[in-house]
Structure formats: structure tokens, C-alpha cells
Design a protein around this nucleic acid. Structure first.
Lengths: 236, 236
DNA sequence: CCGCTGCCTTGATGATCGTCAAGCAGCGAC
DNA sequence: GTCGCTGCTTGACGATCATCAAGGCAGCGG
């Protein structure tokens, strides 16, 4: 079942943040005609690691997690993608199979665009290619940053850093004007994201709580002061 | 001083592995006329973190290290670039300042190409843009892999992995048919690359040696058997 | 030849973090 | 309700790793 509001690309709320903002009306009509929008419930997988890349996915709402399997077969959350983000595009551009698994983390509506369609659009509109280039450049820089963080930060710092990133997307002020957030992912996934064991994360959260920076109740977090938290991050 | 052999792009040994393989003879002549080739000795820095991106650098021989400064001001080696690789191109494409410092690690000859020249070539030849896209895609995937490695591998595994990567570029068989290699970087830089302290690296090297996998003497390494070493890497 | 300096090693110690195991809270199924 | 499941927490322990400090060893200038 698909929500009425996002049924067409023209009405899509997040289009201007995606690669597709490079398209003109005619091209957008083409895209609109062949895209496959769908709402998924949490737990669904869009594609599996090793699958052929059949096309790319454009998230219109919700949250999708990208996972990778290690040598032992354990699935590790590598990153999160939200509304306005495109996934599977790198495998598409490299004409290779998927290097990771995409799993829906929250109820989400996602549009699928077949490989052939994207190719046609890319040939018609060179600006679309530049958008993909921009996206790839940003991804490369992001991964470089995260690699640097993992090497130079402690688990505690990485946790605080992740909390701030999540807050930017999922946080808000409650009725008392206090910054609060509902964590979109489990502690196990938090652990995988920052490269630590779930137990260590649990203890780290406890420590952050003891210092009065935030209060955790299940997946609900209430921060005492965002400024105090930012100050604790490496780099002043 | 510039070596005679690599004085022109047409004679450049590594051109077919660079982005410039997309250029036709006419475009190559343009590039050849304005490029600035130079040989640097070890220790020189090509550009500093935070500098404006004046153009891109194409390594024709030698080795260049990419460093980043952490909050405390320590410089940590992030990656190595060898002949046929282009550096500074992501800052150029994003029209931003350099996110890292490039330091010559071995005597190297490097060609500098001014920003305006690259722009002109990009406008003339769309294939060149595709080459840059490919390079960026590869970089993004590489960083994703390394992030995954850092999170899931131990220091020992990361060391062995790095040794194999270095061997592919700097290793060879000696007169007795044994695989040997001269390490291009210091232990401190090895430590930074894999995210560990120099002391831990020293001890890790000792352990690898005790197990008979390799013998280290200063920067000289002699492997007992590459197959045995590969088997020790995670993922069978 | 001496002393210096940078780089590497080694040892001792403690902090951090992973692992194993048990207990607990929430939650849906029945 | 209560059973069982899953995810989270806690404790105890050991392995790993960083830190501090001392010493060795080459290269180099005096």
C-alpha cells in the first residue's frame, strides 16, 4: 500500500534533496511512470549482499539500514539512510553486485527504479551524472571521516558522536523544551555502528548517564544539555 | 629536476592507469603543455590540510602519503598513493579546501595540473568525468572496506593485511626465490595506518616473527611463505 | 671518537574492552 | 494470567592494548 501524498515524483517531499532534482519535467514524468513505490514494514530486506544490482532505491520516508556480513557470518550495521537518500547506486554505477544488505529499520516508503531506466536518464541528462558524482564524493569523505574517528576516538567519544548525529535526524524538544529523542536502532546495532560489543555500549551508556549528560530509558533518551555534550566531543 | 623519460605525458609510463587515459591526442597535448612535472625528495609536502585546492597532483613515480591532523595536532597517516594515482582530486571536484596533507614519502616525480586546466578538459571530454567518477567510487568502496576491517579485525590481522597490501606494491622475490620487501614507511606510520600505538606494532611484529611467518630487520622483511600468511587473514 | 638525535624495542603497569554467564524487563502468543 | 522469547543489563574474568619509562642502536655532526 502506498501513501497518496507521495504517489507521484512531482509531489514527492524529498525530491529536491535527491539526485532527481536534476531532472526536468519531461524526464521526471518518465521516471514517475516506471518507478515502483512501495511501503515496507520494519524488518524487510530490500536486497541482499551478493545480489545482482537490479536498480536503485530512493527512500521517500522512514529509515533503511545497510548491513555487511563478516567472515563469521555475523551481520554488522554499517550505516543508516533516511528520506531523500539513494541506496544501491554505487553498485549500479560500478555495474557490480551489492556489497551489502539493505534492511528496512522503520516503516518506510521506498521507490525502486530499474537499472535500464536510470541508464536512459543518465544518457539524456548529464547533470544527473554530476549529482551521482556529488553523492559519491560525499560518501567517500564521510567514510574517510569515520575511518579517522574509529582510529583516533575512544568508544565513549564515538558513542557521543553517534548520539549527536542521530539527534540531528530524530531528536526534538519536548513540551518542557528539553532535547529528547527516540533511538531508531537497537543497542546491538549501535554497538556494530561504532565497532564495540553490546555490553561495552551498555556500560558506556551507563557512564554517560552517571555523569548526568543524558537519561536513557529503553529507546528514549533525554539530554540534559546538548552544549555540554558537544563540548565532550574531541576537537574542543 | 625532472627525469627525461617522463618529461611528456605521451611517454608517461603510468598514463594508462590514470584518469588521463580518457584523453585524445589533442587534449593530451594541451595537458602536456601546462602540466608542471617535478621531482621531490622525501619529506616534502605537496599541500597542507586546509589549503585551497589549486589543482590536482598526478604521481608518476615514487610514493606520497596522505596525513590528517587530529584534535591534539598529531599527524596520522591515512593512506598511501603510488604511481598512476591522482591526489587532491576530491577537493577539486567538491571545490573545497584540502581535508588532508600530502607528504612525499619516497623520492617521487609528481605532475601538478592547475584547476583551470582540469576544468577545461572536463568540459571538453565527458569521459574524463566518468574516469573521476570511477576513481571516487573505488575510493568510497575502499574506505568502506577499511572501516569494516578496523571494526571487525584485531590489530594482528590488520597488520598482516597491510603487509600483504604493501607486498603487492613493493615486494619481490630475492635471488633465492624468497618473497622479500623493503618497507616504505616507518613503524610509527604503520601504527597510524592501522590505528594502534607504535609499541603495539613493535610487539605485534615480534609475535609474527616468533611464529615464523616473516623475519623483520629494520625496514627489510622476508616472508617465509605468502600462502601461510594469507591463510591467517580473516575470511579463510 | 664522542655525543647527539630519532627511531625502534622492551618491560611493567593499568585502563579499556571483549567474552562468558547469569539475571532481568518487556512483550506478544496463547 | 503465564509461558517463552528477545533484547538489555550486570558481574566476573581475561585478553588486548595504551601509556610511561628505560634502554639500545643506527646515522650524523662535531
Amino acid at each position: 500500500m502506498t501513501g497518496k501524498m507521495n504517489a507521484t515524483c512531482f509531489g514527492c517531499q524529498v525530491r529536491h534533496t535527491t539526485e532527481w532534482c536534476a531532472l526536468n519535467d519531461e524526464e521526471l514524468a518518465l521516471l514517475d511512470g516506471v518507478k515502483v513505490p512501495k511501503t515496507y514494514e520494519a524488518g524487510t530486506t530490500l536486497f541482499h549482499q551478493g545480489d545482482d544490482c537490479a536498480g536503485i532505491y530512493c527512500i521517500s520516508s522512514g529509515l533503511v539500514g545497510v548491513r555487511r556480513l563478516d567472515a563469521a557470518g555475523n551481520s554488522t550495521l554499517v550505516r543508516l539512510c533516511g528520506p531523500g537518500e539513494t541506496i544501491g547506486y554505487r553498485s549500479f554505477l560500478r555495474k557490480s553486485s551489492h556489497r551489502s544488505t539493505a534492511e528496512v529499520m522503520m516503516p518506510s516508503t521506498v521507490c525502486f527504479i530499474r537499472r535500464a531506466t536510470v541508464r536512459t536518464l543518465l544518457e539524456q541528462n548529464p547533470n544527473l551524472g554530476l549529482r551521482f558524482l556529488d553523492h559519491t564524493l560525499k560518501d567517500a569523505d564521510d567514510f574517510e571521516d569515520r575511518h579517522f574517528e574509529n582510529v583516533t576516538f575512544t568508544v565513549r567519544s564515538r558513542l557521543l558522536s553517534l548520539l549527536m548525529v542521530l539527534y540531528e535526524r530524530f531528536g526534538h524538544l519536548n513540551e518542557n523544551g528539553e532535547p529528547v529523542m527516540e533511538l531508531p536502532i537497537s543497542r546491538q546495532d549501535i554497538a556494530a555502528l561504532i565497532g564495540a560489543s553490546p555490553e561495552t555500549i551498555s556500560r558506556s551508556i551507563g557512564a554517560v548517564q552517571d555523569e548526568g549528560l543524558a537519561v536513557f530509558k529503553g529507546r528514549k533518551v533525554q539530554f540534559h544539555s546538548l552544549e555540554a555534550l558537544v563540548q565532550q566531543l574531541p576537537g574542543a
